[in-house]
Simulated scan of single mutants.
Amino acid sequence: MSYEDLDVWKRSARLSVTLYQETKELRDFGFRDQLTRSGLSVPSNIAEGYERDSDKEIARFLTIAKGSAGEMRTQILIGIEAGYLDKATAKRWAEEAKQLGKMLAALIQRHKRKSG
């Protein structure tokens, strides 16, 4: 199976694209850069893990991706409070980031069992 076949990769890549598109006019470059970087990190680390040779390595990179999903969710929630992001839209993004974290947790456990 390729990482491109994984729903979690597809959904995280789609969310990353959305973050780039929807925040391109945001004037706070530091915030925008941090948010888009954390969003990009999720599918990128999934891909890197699946290009490795072992379940242990896959689990390690999925764990990094899960951390990035949490970072992204936090930044989205802060963006709402700071008035940078549309509340309704950003709440959907935050929920998607939360779901991605859950999906990644399940994949991590699967690969840890296989490597153990």
Rank of each mutant, 00 (worst) to 15 (best):
M1A: 14
E4W: 01
E4H: 07
D5K: 15
D5E: 15
V8R: 02
K10L: 08
R11K: 15
R11L: 14
R14L: 09
S16M: 13
E22S: 13
T23Y: 09
T23N: 11
K24D: 13
E25F: 11
G30H: 00
F31M: 07
R32N: 09
Q34M: 07
Q34Y: 01
Q34S: 09
Q34E: 10
L35D: 09
S38I: 05
S41Y: 01
S41T: 09
V42R: 08
V42I: 15
P43T: 05
P43E: 04
N45H: 10
N45E: 11
I46H: 12
E51I: 07
E51S: 15
R52E: 12
S54Q: 12
K56V: 11
K56T: 13
E57W: 01
I58K: 15
I58H: 10
I58G: 09
A59V: 06
R60V: 03
I64F: 07
I64P: 00
K66F: 00
K66E: 12
S68D: 08
E71I: 03
M72Q: 14
M72C: 15
T74E: 02
I76K: 01
I78M: 06
G79N: 00
L85F: 08
K91I: 05
R92C: 06
W93T: 06
A94I: 02
E96F: 01
K98L: 02
L100Q: 11
M103R: 07
M103F: 05
A105W: 01
I108C: 05
R113E: 13
R113F: 02
R113T: 13
S115E: 14
G116L: 14
